[in-house]
Nucleic acid binder design. Structure first.
Length: 660
DNA sequence: TGGGGTCCT
DNA sequence: AGGACCC
């Protein structure tokens, strides 16, 4: 819903100008640092503010060796290969959390493909260990006051997707266990997804694929397929499907996908659950920093308006540069962007709304060196003014050469974005000036928040081929004529012991049934996850926590019926899942006593620096998206940025005696 | 409809 | 410089 239509519905709505994402970034940073501190290989990749993949295959392999199959119940998971005491006890007879595929069985018992069950057994063992590691990490994050969801699998794609299966505050391991089972499980899992749900297949690609499916299925049969509901299975059932066919289908898209796709071949392998992309090593320096503002409902028309906005934006940008590109003391730049980019979106006619990025145009230029001159007494203001006057405004005029159709000398600008990029990075550990005192072993200056995680085995990275048989020479010659083989018959999964743990954020359920939005476990005394117990009984408690949590999840699901969302508060949730259906009951359980205003702690709702949110866009087409909560008082969806304003709104109501 | 990001042409 | 993808 646009702000304009929100205002139409609710004229009293107070709109707060400009979201400040700083609090989100800070939390993100903290949790990312936490996760990173557990990694042995620093392969900890983030996506957005709230997702992380971790490649933990090294940790898993180490711990496979440690397993004592004669006493699985009392296993020890070692978190530090130099300190055997660092770790946690767990029960290796079963998986932690939920499992997709086969029954939920552990390493013992008949027909489990058990501990010594060959390659499949080994993979199962690794996945099982990863599930326990995932639980451990998730509990650590809960100690910080946040909840997560997590997927565990053998590559990033699968881990991310399977993390959605038991969405709120839970984890799921995708059991893909070898030639006899693995591919079946993976294909069954993948096949059930709508095309658009596959990461890497975005709106354009999904539309093209759907069109193709519809064109193919038309002659024969039945009901008119809804493009959005076409599944991977549907598409794969098209007889004529081949990589080259897909290539031509997608050729009109100038480029495809971020996963390095673009080719039909790649898309096909995605559809089969293959994803050779490695978890990228943690990066301390972003490749780009940008600040933008939109003026959708009230386009900027005068050059003076534009100048003022550019000053605001540039001021924030300089601040961001200092927090993200300087060392802790703000003494030294760790990286200097070399390029400055200005992007605008001339407001187009209402009809032309089409793409989300429609009409964006940009210009790049060198970033003047004076930007890095610090220590100025007047602060940044001079720098900002100068940059706007000397660089940004001229760029703007180039971008918007003449006055638009207004007839006069007016602009009509719906968006401004200022970006610094092309980082010239100064390696902190080798930088001349520096801290002799201690190598940069401090990771606290990283960003991140918690969400996805992965684990895989770099050693097998070359066997990219989950997609294509590692067919020796055929592989080498492959590029000569790529298409023919549609049946990218997966390689032997047991060949591919990559583990991929995907941790994704979820929700927080108020533990006492009272609708308080507190994020902190410690605040509301949730007994199952307190620090205290964990320290007192490290061995038994984590397992108990797992059990308790699993039981709690079952209870929750049970008494809530099929709708897991009731009476949950969601804190930063994924974009595309069905958890939210926007019906009012989703957030507020009418069976619960209606809260009075005193019961509602807006600080808590906002807590975590505003991490609370509700997913709005479940169809993934970009509409209705936005983070926020449903107000317990009026049941309206309140975007995060408007939360405090909304709170004020109710206080005013109360003040005026209109409430009640 | 928002305020960011990444990678690939 | 722009497009496609991600949150």
């Amino acid at each position: 819903m646009s702000i304009a239509s929100a205002l139409a519905i609710c004229p009293d709505l107070v709109i707060v100008d400009g979201e400040d994402l700083t609090p989100f970034r800070d939390v993100s940073k903290r949790l990312y640092a936490l996760l990173r501190s557990y990694s042995w290989n620093d392969r900890v990749e983030r996506l957005g503010l709230d997702e992380v993949w971790m490649d933990v295959s090294d940790i898993i392999e180490y711990n496979v060796e440690l397993l004592n199959r004669h006493d699985l119940e009392h296993s020890w998971f070692c978190l530090d290969n130099k300190d055997p005491e660092k770790g946690f006890a767990f029960d290796a007879r079963g998986f932690a959390g939920q499992v997709y595929g086969r029954e939920k069985v552990g390493l013992e018992g008949p027909g489990t493909g058990g501990y010594e069950g060959g390659q499949a057994g080994l993979l199962r063992t690794k996945l099982l260990l990863a599930s326990h590691l995932a639980l451990h990490l998730r509990l650590k994050i809960e100690e910080e006051g946040y909840t997560t969801a997590c997927g565990i699998s053998t590559n990033k794609l699968l881990a991310k997707l399977v993390g959605n299966v038991n969405k709120p505050r839970n984890q799921t391991t995708l059991l893909s266990l070898g030639p006899d089972d693995g591919e079946e499980t993976v294909q069954r899992f993948m096949g059930s997804h709508q095309l658009r749900k596959i990461p890497g297949i975005g709106g354009k690609t999904a539309a093209a694929l759907s069109d193709y499916f519809i064109s193919q299925s038309k002659p024969g049969s039945s009901s008119p397929p809804n493009p959005k509901e076409i599944t991977v299975d549907d598409l794969l059932s098209c007889p004529g499907l081949s990589p080259s066919k897909l290539d031509s289908l997608l050729s009109s898209l100038s480029s495809s996908s971020s996963t390095g796709t673009g080719t039909g071949k790649h898309i096909l392998s995605l559809l089969q659950g293959h994803d050779p992309s490695p978890v990228k090593p943690a990066r301390s320096i972003p490749t780009q920093i940008s600040i933008e503002d939109t003026y959708f409902s009230c386009p900027l028309v005068t050059i003076e308006q534009i100048r003022r906005e550019l000053v605001k934006i540039t001021g924030s940008l300089l601040k961001r540069m200092k927090t993200d590109l300087m060392d802790d003391d703000k003494k030294r730049w760790l990286a200097r962007p070399k390029t400055l980019r200005l992007t605008t979106r001339p407001r187009t006619d209402p009809k032309e709304g089409r793409g989300y990025g429609y009409g964006r145009v940009s210009k790049s230029q060198g970033l003047p060196g004076y930007v890095f001159n610090n220590g100025n007494a007047h602060g940044d203001d001079e720098i900002v003014q100068r940059l706007v006057a000397e660089t940004l405004l001229p760029m703007f005029r180039e971008l918007n050469p003449l006055n638009p159709r207004k007839g006069g000398k007016e602009y009509s600008i719906g968006l401004l974005n200022v970006c610094v990029t092309n980082m010239d990075s100064i390696d902190p550990t080798t930088a001349g000036g520096g801290g002799s005192g201690g190598g940069g072993r401090d990771i606290k200056n990283m960003f991140m928040r918690a969400r996805e995680f992965t684990v895989y085995d770099p050693e097998h990275e070359h066997a990219d081929n989950t997609g294509t048989q590692p067919e020796t020479e055929a592989e080498l010659l492959e590029h000569s004529d790529v298409d023919v083989d549609v049946d990218v018959h997966a390689g032997d999964p047991s060949h591919d012991p990559d583990l991929n743990l995907d941790m994704s954020d979820t929700s927080y359920e108020s533990s006492n049934g009272k609708a308080r939005g507190s994020l902190k476990n410690n605040d509301n005394g949730d007994p199952s996850t307190t620090n205290h117990q964990q320290q007192q009984h490290p061995v038994s408690t984590i397992h108990e926590q797992a059990q308790a949590q699993a039981q709690a999840d079952r209870d929750t699901n049970h008494h809530l019926g099929t709708n897991m969302s009731t009476n949950h508060y969601y804190f930063h949730i994924e974009d595309d899942d069905e958890v939210w259906d926007d019906s009012p009951d989703n957030v507020w359980n009418h069976n619960e006593e209606e809260p009075t205003e005193e019961d509602i702690d807006y600080d808590d709702l906002r807590d975590a620096e505003g991490m609370s949110c509700v997913n709005g866009d479940s169809d993934g087409d970009g509409d209705g998206d936005g983070d926020g909560i449903k107000c317990p008082l009026c049941n309206h969806f309140i975007p995060l940025f408007a939360l405090s304003a909304h709170e004020r709104f109710h206080s005013m109501e109360e003040f005026e005696g209109e409430l009640d």
